[in-house]
Design a protein around this nucleic acid. Structure first.
Length: 404
RNA sequence: GCGUCGGUGGCAGAGUGGUCAAUUGCACUUGGCUGUAAACCAAGCGGAUUUAUCCUACGGAGGUUCGAAUCCUCCCCGGCGCA
């Protein structure tokens, strides 16, 4: 018996509900996992998170390793204790930073491709501490691992699967991810394939590094990550390969375009064991969340809710509102008349618009709470609908209004 | 009253004879953001447009010059100093 266990509860089509049990509590799935990269969900206190309905939070290995250093988090008693979050926690492996500080660095590309982007010219970069600066990136990949230039002070750092796992052991989250390479959606098929195989080797090394640590095995579960980009054959191959390893759960990692997200899921999911949790990494927006749930995913994390909130946008049942826009300066109506988010009921659009425009921190906090509450309720609603066998109608209703 | 410094786009503040419809910041308008280099980034921001150009603009009025936000004269306004 590992540190975590998962029991399926009910199915509705390919969608499903379940209960994920961790050393720090249970998670009813499907569940949205707020992102707290540096051991804090930006602008929102743990108590507020709880109140909003969050069941689990996800922090980042790369960021906490650089600052304050995993030793300090460990000395504090682990991630949850350190940030005073008593519920379940997760950490990402730093694999995403291979992408965001590598191929995506200084460019406009994101993990979700839109339209045509200039294809990349090179494949694997051989390790060389000058290569990063030459390529204008902070991360350089080789078969053994990744060399990062710290975005904080320019110092050089090296992550291997073993090192990532070691750090994640120190951080002590209930669940964490294998070290992977998140590729840019603009990469060629050949590169995606090569990167996928590298991710598989890294998955094996990550898993072995974890299983070697008996104490960690009792306290933490490890998730393997499926890659393969937008290519369904690669997604299937990757899922089959990762599923063959003894992971406690599985993640499906980015990079595709909006159009082939569903295809990627449908190619990968049938290869994954039914009885283990599946996490859709970095997803997403309301529609993507419902798509993922429909296809059978259990967990989701995404920075969008809090990021767009800080930047001035909020979710509503009728779509996204840019609260800084002129029209909301005098709009005394609630943020979203159709969604009641605990702790934000009394705030008007005009008020939050004012806070946002005047650069007040509270504006970001209220908007973040609202968006988190909105997403959490959306997923709660999906879970409830699933239990009653009416998920399809739930999704349809939501999308009809949201994307109208 | 005398002396002196100064009056530039919503604000602050560059420019100090042509390449100036005028650097930059803020404000403003609109976009973007999906495992957080992100309380960030991008575009626009006098008017009209056939987007080539044209018109109106750097306190006001004259003047010098091929050409002025930039030089000269007078006027108006403000800061400071002396009476």
């Amino acid at each position: 018996m590992g540190a975590i266990s998962f029991s399926l509860e009910k199915r509705d089509g390919r969608a499903r509900t379940g209960v994920l049990t961790t050393p720090h509590g249970t998670i009813e799935t499907p569940a949205f996992v707020p992102v707290g990269t540096k051991a804090n969900v930006k602008g929102v206190l743990p108590g507020m998170l709880k109140n909003l309905g969050a069941q689990v939070v996800l922090a980042n290995t790369y960021h906490l390793y650089l600052q304050p250093g995993e030793k300090i988090v460990e000395a504090a008693g682990g991630l949850g204790k350190f940030m005073d979050w008593s519920g379940p926690t997760m950490t990402d492996s730093g694999g995403f930073q291979v992408f965001s500080l590598g191929a995506a660095f200084g460019r406009t590309i994101t993990k979700i491709a839109k339209g045509e982007e200039a294809p990349r010219e090179h494949g694997v970069s051989v390790f060389d501490e000058d290569v990063a600066s030459q390529h204008g990136q902070l991360a350089v990949i080789d078969d053994e691992g990744v060399t990062f230039t710290s975005h904080l002070d320019g110092s050089l750092h090296r992550f291997t699967p073993e090192r990532s796992i070691e750090i994640q052991h120190a951080l002590g989250a209930d669940m964490f991810f294998a070290f992977d390479e998140c590729t840019a959606p603009t990469e060629s098929y050949e590169y995606q394939k090569e990167a996928m195989h590298r991710t598989h080797r890294w998955a094996d090394r990550s898993l072995k590094a974890h299983r070697r640590n008996l104490k960690a095995n009792k306290e933490q579960g490890i998730f393997g990550i499926v890659q393969g980009g937008r290519h369904e054959d690669l997604r299937q191959e990757s899922a089959r390969e990762i599923a063959s390893m003894d992971f406690d759960g599985f993640g499906i990692g980015g990079s595709f375009s909006k159009e082939d997200m569903q295809g990627a899921l449908q190619a990968a999911i049938p290869e994954l064991p039914e009885e283990k949790p599946r996490h859709f990494l970095g997803i997403g927006e309301p529609g993507d969340l419902l798509l993922g749930i429909q296809e059978g995913m259990d967990l989701f994390d995404c920075v969008a809710a809090t990021r767009i909130a800080r930047h001035g946008s909020i979710y509503t049942r009728r779509g996204i509102l840019h609260l800084r826009n002129e029209q909301y300066r005098t709009d005394m109506s609630p943020l979203d008349p159709e969604t009641v988010v605990p702790g934000t009921e009394g705030f008007s659009r005009a008020y939050v618009s004012h806070l946002l425009r005047s650069g007040e921190i509270l504006g970001a906090t209220i908007a973040s709470m609202h968006n988190l509450g909105f997403i959490l309720q959306l997923v709660d609603g999906a879970r409830a609908a699933l239990r009653e066998g009416r998920f399809a109608a739930y999704r349809e209703d939501f999308c009809r209004d949201y994307y109208a």
